[in-house]
Design a protein around this nucleic acid. Structure first.
Lengths: 182, 182
DNA sequence: ACGAGCATATATACGCCCGATATATGCCAC
DNA sequence: GTGGCATATATCGGGCGTATATATGCTCGT
């Protein structure tokens, strides 16, 4: 799935500017299963407009920069709906945390413990934001997705909490040894 | 984390060719938390060699193409160990499946059910491969990682299995309606 | 016996996309 | 009044994935 399709998906529900699309895809309701940055969104919107899948107009507000609001066309809606019939790509899970954990045995226990605690805190924040989203959202599909996120990330959190001591035990308990490793 | 660092990580344990590094990172023990393709691995290895972090030699085998085997240098080991002290980037979870699920209400129930079953089958395969890896692997850090994968993906699997009917119910039960949506 | 398909193996071109940066406006707190 | 933050658009450079080209030899079916 590319950023152009993501833009069409967001615009399928309501008009939005590039800034708003990025917010939704990195902080809002889409943030836990897609990601997109300015560097891909703005070119994508320009290309979608040149292809006639979206239109745009400038909106000016008092005391704020002018906004270029994009709206999906009927052709755009059709293109997007058709894309939903394509086979799905595999989910992507990439974890620098697990990569780090794999090398616990050559790292100081102190560092391993710190990273584990950071990861736990991050997951707590994430789950808290999911719970907040769940309360605020009304679409039942979105609730289904958010509950999925809460369950899956909750399990990851619990695993780390329950097994962190094992990983710390594999690390270098002697600060001297880890100094030498540097 | 970039592909150069990933190469150093794999070469930290043992010598390997570009082909073998790609295999490990997309099919083997690294595959569930990193990913790398030929298009990034080969240039990465060339650059690592030019920087003196790895060396290479050609190995010829009867009845097989010649292999360019890379070996990490002491400088390479040091560089890699130091990189493990850097702050960790956030984990990445991207799901085209969840993206698809969000639009269940405009899709035919038949398609939604098919995709849910495909996803369940994929997760079963993944978990089966984790269990196989767990039996074969000896490093306790790797076992810690693999058990994490089994738990987290198992929970995802269970959620889908238990709640799939809810999502199917949100879809278009009438084949005519979904035809019109196309 | 022969060819299709597949595993092994290296390498590159094209294009997508992220991260960083530049630019601009106006609010609020200190 | 000024530094930081939210809003807002846009582009550059570089990293990386997809697809492809090229080459070898095995296995399996016919």
């Amino acid at each position: 799935m590319n950023v152009r399709t993501l833009c069409l998906a967001i615009l399928y529900d309501k008009e939005a500017s590039g800034y708003e699309i990025r917010k939704m895809s990195t902080e809002g309701e889409y943030s836990f299963f897609v990601e997109a940055s300015y560097g891909s969104i703005y070119p994508a919107l320009q290309r979608l407009e040149s292809e006639g899948l979206v239109t745009s107009h400038i909106e000016t507000h008092e005391g704020r920069p002018a906004k270029k609001v994009y709206k999906i066309t009927e052709t755009g809606r059709e293109t997007f709906r058709n894309s939903l019939f394509e086979p799905l790509n595999q989910d992507v899970f990439r974890s620098e945390f697990l990569f780090f954990a794999r090398f616990a045995s050559i790292l100081p226990a102190e560092l391993v413990e710190r990273r584990l605690n950071e990861r736990l805190a991050d997951l707590d924040d994430l789950i808290a934001s999911f719970n907040k989203m769940l309360k605020e959202c009304s679409r039942s599909e979105d609730q289904w997705l958010i509950r999925f996120g809460i369950e899956a990330h909750g399990k990851a959190r619990d695993y780390i909490a329950q097994h962190k001591q094992e990983l710390i035990a594999m690390a270098q308990s002697d600060p001297e040894t880890s100094q030498a490793a540097e």
